[in-house]
Design a protein around this nucleic acid. Structure first.
Lengths: 205, 205
DNA sequence: TTGACTTATGACAACGTGTCATATACTATT
DNA sequence: AATAGTATATGACACGTTGTCATAAGTCAA
């Protein structure tokens, strides 16, 4: 977490710094990003940077977390919109992630995050549904989901379903990026896969 | 790819170098690994390293690819063993990945790869099943799979099933690592998820 | 005004990377 | 054996990055 000093900064200075950081982290993935570029672009001295953050990771995951919080809120909104249909909500969330975000810098930031810090992103996203992490949110989501549609026996299985869908979404994004698929193609593949797991991939006896 | 010079090296020297590299890449993920450590441990001068490789990525992905080739071969073997049952083959492959590998260094190498270069590992693995990449292998695998068990209409859907199972395996490994689950716990979760997608997660109408 | 505390600053040591001029080894040909 | 031509080995070096630390400047309450 950034140090208190960072939060004590004037709004203007903090905003400049954040913008400089987002610019750098959009340009290249975390491991190639440099503190030097960020401070040059923000116009602050090197010492100050380390007054605010432990290191570049500190700043990076602070920014990433903020963005993921937004996604989590959106997910809840979409779950409402689709009357508790988990798959429809995830479809639209993913679609939004692919297409609707208008800002190219934001897209690149998230792209770099998804590809190079997959484990962190995936964990953060999965934790939304982890009762131990955030009982409040878990309860909210859990109540929203329409169980009648689902072939589940327990709450635990609902969590698994969420994890399966997330895993497929992550996989799909990686495939899209590596094979340079269009948004439409990616979305089509994602939808097909979801249909398959809805119905079951093995023949019923 | 490493340069020809590397392959011209004496077996002994090449082996020493590879061992030094594996040691370093087991210690830390690619982005933290240093050429300096590798050459120090291998006892070769800095200039030589760059005579053999373009950079550390060059060496890293060469090693990683070799290991993934092994997994691919094993997958085909397991598909045979389980008489074309895709899910049983993947279960055992994953189980092997988790438990059977006896060498701790090897485990750490793969762990670092899975967590920090997910996109590359996932792509390489998925390509095994990509007709465009390796028509030979695709044909071999495709013929091995027992379609009678599967609820599929086309070859394309079989590829999707493979992708779904891989995605779940990757997800599971990340979860296992982040939450420090035991091999048994991870395996149990993986099995549950596979059962779910076998049967379908939505109620049939 | 003073003292205590917080924040700002940039020079610096430590380390890492990739290159390049130079030295050395090897091979084939006369 | 001498030579030429090619492949390989070597390590000093220029350049970039990181995180720290001594010092300066600011803030605020008494």
């Amino acid at each position: 977490m950034p140090k208190q000093t960072f939060f004590n900064l004037s709004d203007k200075k903090r905003k400049t710094l954040i913008e400089a950081a987002e610019h750098e982290f959009s340009r290249v993935p975390l491991f190639e990003a440099s503190v030097s570029n960020i401070i040059k672009s923000a116009g602050i001295p090197r010492g100050s940077f380390y007054q605010y953050f432990n290191d570049k990771e500190d700043l990076y995951f602070f920014l990433l977390d903020e963005k993921l919080q937004e996604s989590k809120k959106r997910f809840i909104f979409l779950l409402n919109k689709h009357e508790g249909d988990l798959i429809e909500a995830m479809k639209e969330l993913y679609h939004h992630f692919l297409i609707i975000i208008p800002d190219e810098e934001e897209r690149n930031f998230l792209r770099n995050a998804m590809l190079y810090t997959t484990n962190k992103v995936e964990k953060s996203f999965a934790d939304m549904f982890d009762a131990k992490q955030d009982r409040e949110r878990f309860k909210e989501i859990s109540e929203l989901i329409d169980r009648k549609r689902l072939n589940v026996k327990s709450d635990q299985e609902i969590v698994h379903i969420f994890q399966i869908i997330s895993a497929i979404a992550f996989h799909n994004f990686i495939e899209k990026t590596m094979k340079k698929l269009s948004d439409e193609e990616a979305m089509k593949e994602f939808t097909i896969m979801l249909e398959m797991i809805k119905q079951g991939i093995y023949k019923q006896k």
